[in-house]
Design a protein around this nucleic acid. Sequence first.
DNA 1: ACGGGCATGTAATTAGTTACATGATTAA
DNA 2: TTAATCATGTAACTAATTACATGCCCGT
Lengths: 193, 193
Amino acid sequence: MSLPHAILTALLEKPSSGLALTRRFDRSIGYFWSATHQQIYRELGKLEQAGFIRALPSAQPSRGQKKEFEVLPAGRRELTRWAGGEQDSKPIRDALLLRLRASAVVGRAGLDEELRRHLTLHRRQLAEYEEIEDRDFGAATDPEDRLRRLVLRAGIGLETFWVEWLAQALAEVTELDAAAEDGPEGPGDGPAG
Amino acid sequence: MSLPHAILTALLEKPSSGLALTRRFDRSIGYFWSATHQQIYRELGKLEQAGFIRALPSAQPSRGQKKEFEVLPAGRRELTRWAGGEQDSKPIRDALLLRLRASAVVGRAGLDEELRRHLTLHRRQLAEYEEIEDRDFGAATDPEDRLRRLVLRAGIGLETFWVEWLAQALAEVTELDAAAEDGPEGPGDGPAG
DNA sequence: ACGGGCATGTAATTAGTTACATGATTAA
DNA sequence: TTAATCATGTAACTAATTACATGCCCGT
């Protein structure tokens, strides 16, 4: 349960309105913690009630009106407390890997297209990360930016892994399909429906 | 929403009881799709009602009594249908990366220990995967095992990435802490509480 | 005055987690 | 005969997703 802490971090980096936060979650924050605008508005309400953040005085409290938030001392303390503890990474849930395993049982129909599709997506994401690194962290010297660059490099490393793995998987699946077309044998479910 | 398909895949590979499934989700299946026993029992009930699976006739329907399930033709069709579509991987939510970003704002107290802890965990997981590959996929020749080995290799690749990234992150954080101790300067929050 | 995009929010549903309850089997 | 473990299940809660509702502001 780290969404409140993601929001506190984002607001400490820069006070923002709900929609502005949503945009940042779609971009930089989303590289390690994703959230929709509904989650964000709900959580902003809770954080405000808990006394961790407050609306900037300039913002009127009316629907449809922009409302900017900043972190209060209690909010910073809470984030510091959280950052002092242990964060367990949640176990993996990857639908593509599940599909591969399913394909081993019910056949590989359409699998190569799906691998190609993911390969395109991950190549695009990798390019985006690398562009950001060049643009924003060309010469990161202060401790804050060096930590943020580490986070970005995790994203780059992960995307690099996926691109390489997908290329390898695609090669292997293509080979399997070709072999099955040449001489179908064995009790398998066939290469393509 | 892929838990039912994870269960169908697992049951096609080998008919099992709820607890046996739970054990497999803690092990091989859990490498790409995790689930608790409560989720599994609930989902088994739904799948049975939907006519996708059935209890083996040998199993009595009483509480505390083992009850084994197998996949019915309709269940296999459903899995085939699902495997024919697109599977979007969910956006990342990684608490450790979030914590790094938070540490850039509220200070790095305890960060090195946390990185070391994760490093140990990922090294252990990597060793486990590699052992499995040696043991179960030494000479994977049939298409089914080659696909399953691809899945395992994704796990190996991911863990390898984390181990490397964590080592790098630890080196950098250690360096930052040392520099801060030598000559603390700038408006930062300090290296350790 | 209205259409489009900005901005905040509600409601309903589904998925996932945590805690606990119950019965069956087995071995000391 | 009792304790441990196997095995299935209920209940309550929290988080996340999906769909929709409302009001503001700006350009035409």
